[in-house]
Design a protein around this nucleic acid. Structure first.
Length: 573
RNA sequence: GGCGAGGUAGCUCAGCUGGUUAGAGCGCACGACUCAUAAUCGUGAGGUCGAGAGUUCAAGUCUCUCUCUCGCCA
């Protein structure tokens, strides 16, 4: 059996994610996983919260909570919102898990033994009042180049000059405003990514089927300036994974933690181990997904992420696992997404601009969002969320085309034949033509999903729904019924079977509606992918009982759309 | 500034290795139907494919220049 490992980029812990984050990895990853399961593949679908780093500490402080408690709470919030959007992960883990601690420390040791880790002594800014070292971007001061007073420690936004924190005149902490900051000497571990550059380049060059977005970003970094640079993998923070060499202490590194970029992707692996722990599985059960020497050689690994994450997945994480010298599974297909913009601008957490996952679920069920976001996913370029586009897409596609189809066919049958599939009549030319159309669409839909092209897949799925309306319109059982009841029964039976087919194949996009429709049609909610139109259209035999579903989708009214437009515009523009 | 991605019907976008009258959805106009969530189905109008030059028998599709938009720069 085909085995597919799917990971979605890890949402960062510091707050509820917005629609852009949702469509940039979580949602397409879920649709793809559902599709592959339906096709009979063995799927491992993994995600987790990314919990370490300064932003988490600051968010916890702002919330007045210890960082561990804050992360635990936000993890539950994100987990339940994911469930609200029907994201079906085999495991939704935490990068702060014990498993990730051990694996991260394991990788550090392996890399050290391969000679790929070295120590660097450097100056870093210490804030006495904050009682901590400050990352470069949390320092503010006057730019020595242009005199701009709010330059950051890593760069001046005014003159764009790259800076070192020690360059700043009158430096202060942008966390607390404290001015008692000073440069102190500190030691950090660096990963010798430069030594892995050619190995990574050779690997990337074999990936001719990746979206250009992914390969062009990777190649840019490989070719930029001096090529791939070494990177620090440790930080002077409290919250994180303690720097250790496997389970041994690392002399000179006491009190330090691994840098979040280093431990976060390792959590993909660790979360799979967490899955094993949570389900009473063995070590071998998770390792067969990740270790090529323990069964992962025939695994197809697909990653989903937004474009800002591409460098970490094409360069940093591969450097970690290649450099370990151990046969860990590397990504086979990487799907990167552009940004979703909101009404022509950016989503803004600080200004409350745009729709966030919790708010979205408060105003409409998840299917509405899933459908619009996936059918408009920012695949080839950024795409824009507008309330008008959302309203029109939902009303037209879901309510009018699919929802109304289910209504018209079931209600017609109920009024003429009752709530069982009617018998009689023989399929003819129209049904043959319908079957050809359905077969073509099913093939197109499956091909698009296999290629991870969400918009195209959505359009093929919509085409399947439209084919049902076309068929009914032309076959017109309401007219035929007046002269030939058996023929009308056959047409109606075909229509009911179409509804059952839609219940099955729509699931990757709109799982709740699929459940509702499957329930009404009296079929199992987890039906397998149809082998052919002929099989699908004879699934419901004469005499099979069904019921008329509640309206699958309601329409979005102009007034409520306008209300939401105002509600989510945010404080300022 | 460097790099990347884009500029195709009113709107949102498809158009693979260059090849018949440039496509889809929405919107719009007209028509059909009346089973259905005033839903559906059909027909049609609408584009100098950002601008200019070049290569070619042939360019939205390749090359160069210019221009506008968006993003990234650890």
């Amino acid at each position: 059996m085909t085995r597919i490992l799917i990971t979605s980029a890890l949402p960062y812990i510091n707050g509820v994610k917005h629609l852009g984050n949702l469509v940039g990895s979580l949602l397409p990853s879920d649709a793809y996983a559902r599709f592959m399961r339906m096709r009979g593949a063995e799927v491992m679908h993994i995600c987790a919260t990314d919990e370490h780093g300064t932003p988490a500490e600051l968010a916890a402080a702002a919330a007045g909570e210890p960082v561990e408690a804050y992360c635990a709470r936000l993890h539950e919030v994100q987990k339940s919102l994911g469930e609200g959007f029907r994201l079906e992960f085999d495991h939704f883990g935490r990068s702060s898990s014990d498993r990730n601690h051990r694996l991260t420390q394991h990788f550090a040791k392996a890399l050290f033994e391969q000679g790929l880790i070295y120590e660097v002594t450097e100056q870093q800014m210490w804030s006495e009042s904050d009682g901590r070292f400050l990352p470069d971007r949390y320092l503010e001061g006057t730019c020595p180049n242009c005199g701009y007073e709010r330059a950051r420690g890593d760069q001046c936004e005014n003159c764009t000059k790259q800076l070192d924190p020690t360059d700043l005149i009158n430096p202060r902490s942008s966390v607390s405003g404290a001015t008692d900051v000073e440069a102190r000497e500190t030691k950090h571990l660096y990963l010798k990514q430069s030594a892995l550059q050619e190995q990574i380049r050779a690997w990337i060059e074999t990936k001719s089927d990746w979206p250009v977005l992914a390969t062009s970003i990777a190649k840019k970094w490989l070719n930029d300036g001096d090529g791939l640079r070494d990177r620090g993998i440790t930080r002077d923070l409290d919250w994180g994974i303690p720097v250790k060499k496997g389970d041994e202490d690392w002399p000179g590194m006491e009190g330090k933690v691994f840098y979040v970029w280093f431990d976060a992707p390792i959590e993909y692996i660790a979360a799979t181990a967490e899955w094993a722990d949570a389900h009473g599985k063995s070590e071998a059960d998770w390792r067969r997904w990740w270790r090529e020497d323990e069964g992962a050689r025939d695994v197809h690994y697909v990653q989903f992420m937004a474009k800002d994450n591409v460098p970490f997945h094409t360069l940093s994480f591969p450097a970690t696992i290649m450099g370990s010298g151990e046969p860990w599974k590397k990504v086979d297909f990487l799907k990167g997404f552009n940004w979703l913009t909101y009404q022509g601008g950016k989503f803004s957490t600080s200004q409350g601009r745009g729709v966030f996952m919790d708010q979205a679920l408060e105003i409409l069920p998840s299917d509405y969002w899933r459908w619009w976001l996936l059918s408009n996913a920012p695949e080839s370029a950024d795409s824009d969320f507008t309330w008008e586009g959302f309203q029109s897409g939902v009303n037209k596609d879901l309510a009018d085309v699919l929802g109304n189809f289910a209504s018209r066919v079931t209600k017609f049958c109920r009024s003429k034949f009752g709530e069982t599939v009617p018998e009689g009549g023989e399929p003819g030319e129209a049904e043959a033509a319908l079957a050809v159309e359905i077969d073509t669409r099913l093939k197109g839909y499956a091909a698009a999903m296999e290629a991870v092209e969400m918009r195209k897949a959505a359009s093929e799925l919509r085409g399947l729904w439209v084919a049902g309306n076309e068929y009914l319109q032309h076959a017109a059982p309401w007219s035929v019924f007046k002269t030939d009841e058996a023929q009308a029964a056959m047409i109606t039976r075909t229509g009911l079977n179409l509804a059952a087919l839609y219940a099955t194949v729509s699931r990757p996009f709109i799982p709740d509606a699929s459940d509702a429709l499957a329930g009404a049609m009296g079929i199992a909610p987890n039906g397998a992918w149809p082998e052919s139109a002929a099989v699908a259209l004879s699934q419901l035999p004469a005499g099979h009982a069904f019921s008329v579903p509640e309206n699958l989708f309601r329409k979005i009214e102009d007034a409520e759309r306008e209300g939401w437009e105002a509600q989510f515009e945010g404080a300022a523009t």
